[in-house]
Design a protein around this nucleic acid. Structure first.
Lengths: 346, 346
DNA sequence: CTGAAAGCGCTTACAG
DNA sequence: CTGAAAGCGCTTACAG
């Protein structure tokens, strides 16, 4: 039976005896299988004493419920999946914390998955989560298209965190108000006297596009000209932008569509001998740990990440209970730090 | 049956019809249940044509195997758990990538879990992984004590990545050679002419202690005095160290036990008006993304993370097959960047 | 309050 | 090459 390959369970079994089942507990406690099941789940239709005795016996034997068996009969797993673009983005991390806190409150367990910044891998992970039988999934990545999301959402309810263009019906969403965030950044710089404010955008995704549009509108609204630098692949766009900043009538400030871009601008500026913020002010987006670690520290637009996670999980629970999908928007705030300076004249 | 709470499955079922089982496929293909099972797993004892027909039918119906049911009968899940201290540490991220690559090759799926830097949470997560029925677990956190590890390891094989004091027998390990890494850092600084080299240590964990010991021995070996600053809780220890660096006969270089500490030293130095590296050279450990993002960029000791992940997963697979636990050590390398300068005289 | 029975969706010998 | 049968560990009505 355990002849050839794959039967490595022998080792485990021998290390903790046979695996203890509900039947072992029943025998030890002198009751029926059902009684044990009821006792373990705290069913009221069972005598207090009987119940206590059964629980004690289970404990003594080191009984652990087999989740797979339970899920099989119950038709649900009590698991929710969270799909991340990649690990090690603290933008995502704090959202995950919010999700976990909310999940714990409603008695669900969180399974994490990530796609290593590769849409194909992300798609595979989404399928795997479905195969694992998650009862719902939160997608924390903007790298998946509407078609992929729609297909995955037929298997279990879904909530997307972050902006997605053309989100299919039935899928919930939670996003920050990108337009408001961009406006905060521009207005802050304008208020400090900056007139030539450039925007660095890193991607063509919905959130980046919204920030860019709002930047442009804010600049026009302030009677100023907009200058957008696109640097999707770290292809020298950042250097170009910083080179322009070094010239007469070049930008005196940069609003980047995220902190990574802002950090790259700071690094390139320092590498080129520009002073930050005296020669160039820089604002990022997301208020990540990077923003705090850098010197000068980055001023950045902060999204209320834990709250976003909680909202996403709460909405997912609603969807699982049969509720309607909603699109929730939260307001960002500007966190002011050192990489921005007042600008006189010019 | 689905009266009160928790029966949100109705919604899903209605959105994709009834869930397709092996029995549906059998009926549609006009064969028995067993035939479908055999066909789907590519069993050789089945006609090529029959098999193709069954597979086609399964595809057409959108059949997805129920993993829980399969695991229940097979007695294993094909899942391995990976326990992380927290998300968003790119030291851990690349190890995870190595683990995943190796796992895929041996046909195992990876489940991620993390403890938010809290030992109690970590311990809970480890138990949850066991309850989910993982066939093995890689622990990527140094925050768990031997007792906790030993208990968890009775449920399934375990490999720990990173140094652990008093690792219980039967548990495998993969770690970098901390002593060699510390030596590389000290020798590099000494080679550049530094004589007063301080060490910043952040924790009492085994790896940190080993680096500290090796630092002290390297200094003594070079005929130099050692100066260790302990800053476990960002409690001002970093400021103290940097203040000392500003004084006559203060340290001209700092070797920090990790990049986060090194970054804090750089930030504190710059905040205090010291120039890095002219006034103070700084070396970190782990060669994280932070080391590259900072200006000046950090020189840092690099651990071969993807390789460590692969080794851990490969060893875990061996353990699951009944092999003996081993303790593997890999060699670190020094990655030289800008935050270190040559020191004349002094 | 209890116990026998059916069944969740699959795999696995086993007899044909 | 096929089909009937048992069983993985649990939950859930149901009859007592």
């Amino acid at each position: 039976m355990c002849a050839a390959s794959g039967c490595y369970n022998e080792r485990v079994s021998s290390s903790n005896g046979r695996k203890v089942t509900i039947l072992d507990v029943a025998r030890a406690a002198g009751v029926s299988k059902s009684a044990v099941s009821l006792a373990l789940r705290g069913d009221p239709g069972l005598g207090k004493r009987t119940r206590a005795a059964i629980v004690a016996e289970a404990q003594r034997l080191g009984y652990r419920q087999n989740r797979w068996a339970r899920s099989l009969v119950q038709g649900r797993t009590g698991l929710v999946g969270v799909l991340l673009t990649d690990l090690s983005s603290d933008y995502q991390t704090e959202i995950v914390h919010g999700i976990e806190d909310a999940a714990e409150q409603v008695g669900l367990e969180v399974l994490l998955s990530h796609g290593r910044r590769d849409p194909a891998v992300l798609q595979r992970r989404l399928t795997q989560l479905g195969d694992l039988g998650v009862d719902g999934v939160v997608v924390l990545s903007a790298m998946l298209g509407p078609a992929v999301l729609a297909r995955a959402a037929t298997r279990q309810p879904m909530v997307v965190v972050g902006r997605v263009e053309g989100l299919p019906p039935g899928i919930g969403s939670v996003a920050n108000h990108d337009e408001a965030g961009a406006q905060l950044a521009v207005q802050h710089l304008v208020g400090l006297g900056h007139r030539r404010i450039a925007h660095l955008t890193m991607s063509q995704r919905a959130a980046a596009r919204a920030r860019r549009r709002a930047y442009e509108e804010s600049m026009v609204g302030a009677g100023l000209g907009a200058f957008v630098q696109v640097a999707p692949e770290w292809d020298g766009g950042v250097d170009q932008l910083v080179a322009a900043a070094g010239e007469q009538d070049g930008p005196t400030a940069v609003f980047a569509s995220n902190d990574r871009g802002a950090a790259a601008v700071v690094a390139a500026a320092l590498d080129r001998g520009l002073r930050v913020p005296e020669d160039l002010s820089v604002i990022g987006y997301d208020n990540t740990a990077l923003a705090q670690a850098l010197r000068p520290a980055l001023t950045s637009v902060d999204q209320p990440r834990p709250q976003m996670g909680r909202l996403a999980m709460d909405q997912l629970a609603e969807l699982m209970a049969g509720g309607e999908a909603r699109h929730q928007v939260v307001e960002p705030e500007l966190v002011v730090r050192g990489a921005v300076a007042r600008r006189w004249g010019s």
